[in-house]
Design a protein around this nucleic acid. Structure first.
Lengths: 201, 201
DNA sequence: ATTCTTATTGAGAGTATTGTCAATAGTGAC
DNA sequence: GTCACTATTGACAATACTCTCAATAAGAAT
């Protein structure tokens, strides 16, 4: 009956995430989480300080997972172990999995965009890594521009897909991978210095 | 002192939109709108029936504007008066202008996705028009697939750009048109039946 | 002018949410 | 076993939001 603080926090964050996915951001209230867990809402205040503390911690956790996932994909790409198409898949999955994209959108909508900073960092890391590996050939400035553009492109599309992709696909009758497949096919053309490459490896 | 019903509704919707842009979806309350307009919140209930009625009307109005804008762009494209790049620009602007993208995201997040149906319809209209104009040449089924994919692609990316584009661009230091320019450059390749064509009209 | 419609308001009820505070009860340390 | 720590709870206050209801008043119609 008496959980460790870590247990309590983990349970609460899992419940909050469940509520976010099922009923949207506004459903994450102290009472809803407490009743879902069968505990009192005052206990949540005890563990998180306030309702804002819980929400903030949920944001921090999900952004952390998101960036970790993407970072590992960047590592593989840096090691030359993966294709661009796989990277696209991972980014799309990362925004889709566990409602990370919906949460990111919520943060952007409610003005809590400071929590998004880690995403910007990992994007910058990715840009640096690709730049470093590629500056042997071609114009470094040009490559920098292409890589940043491509990364922005993937991230923005992955977010949009996570939020509205399912609804739109339902309306026009396409399957789930439609957008990410296109992105995977087109991105190499953006990255390649020569405009001919649709490098299908 | 005594407005016409249309005046009152117009004022209220404008105020609600302002609040949505400035402080996010949760800021659209009867009290906030009423105080912004210097009227009592009961008057808003009189005109919209309920708080949900006001929000619903705001969604309807903004989606209507969005679809109207996109539809006119589709007409121009159908008449052969515009390039694909212009269409991309218009879709991106439509989601950005007046916070339509943020509102669409809010709808998707809160489960009010029925209001999104008109967007699906205009997308389907666009698909039909392009299909009809293009089925003289090539495989009709293939063209259908390419066009639906491309339209999904543009819409999803435009939404993502409207929500998180500014934040991400700020973090990596790119200007505003980065993503839409890429989309405009890549989309013709998706639409062309032959993989060589980046058909610039 | 009188009447009718309705835009507008203020008071107040009902509910949800956050938060405070004191008290209870596990759990480990000694 | 006793004590200290703290996870947990229930009662209660405070605020915000929605909504009902009765009353007021502005404008149109006659």
């Amino acid at each position: 009956m008496r959980r460790t603080p870590e247990e309590a926090r983990t349970l609460a964050l899992a419940s909050a995430r469940r509520l976010l996915l099922a009923e949207g951001p506004d459903a994450i209230t102290l009472q809803a989480v407490a009743s879902d867990l069968g505990m009192s809402h005052t206990n949540l205040i005890h563990h998180f300080g306030s309702a804002a503390g819980l929400q903030s911690e949920l944001m921090r956790q999900m952004v952390s997972e998101l960036t970790t996932t993407i970072e590992s994909a960047v590592m593989r790409l840096r090691a030359g172990k993966g294709e661009v198409k796989d990277f696209v898949d991972i980014v799309f999955d990362a925004f889709d999995r566990g409602g990370a994209g919906r949460l990111a959108a919520w943060m952007a909508l409610t003005g809590e965009s400071m929590h998004l900073a880690p995403i910007g960092e990992v994007v910058r890391d990715y840009i640096d890594s690709v730049e470093r590996g590629a500056d042997a050939e071609g114009d470094a400035a040009l490559i920098h521009e292409r890589v940043t553009s491509a990364t922005l492109f993937v991230t923005v599309a992955a977010l949009g897909d996570a939020i509205i992709g399912n609804e739109l696909r339902k309306m026009v009758g396409r399957e789930r991978e439609t957008v990410r497949k296109l992105m995977g096919a087109l991105l190499p053309a953006v990255l390649a210095a020569q405009p001919n490459g649709s490098g299908q490896s």
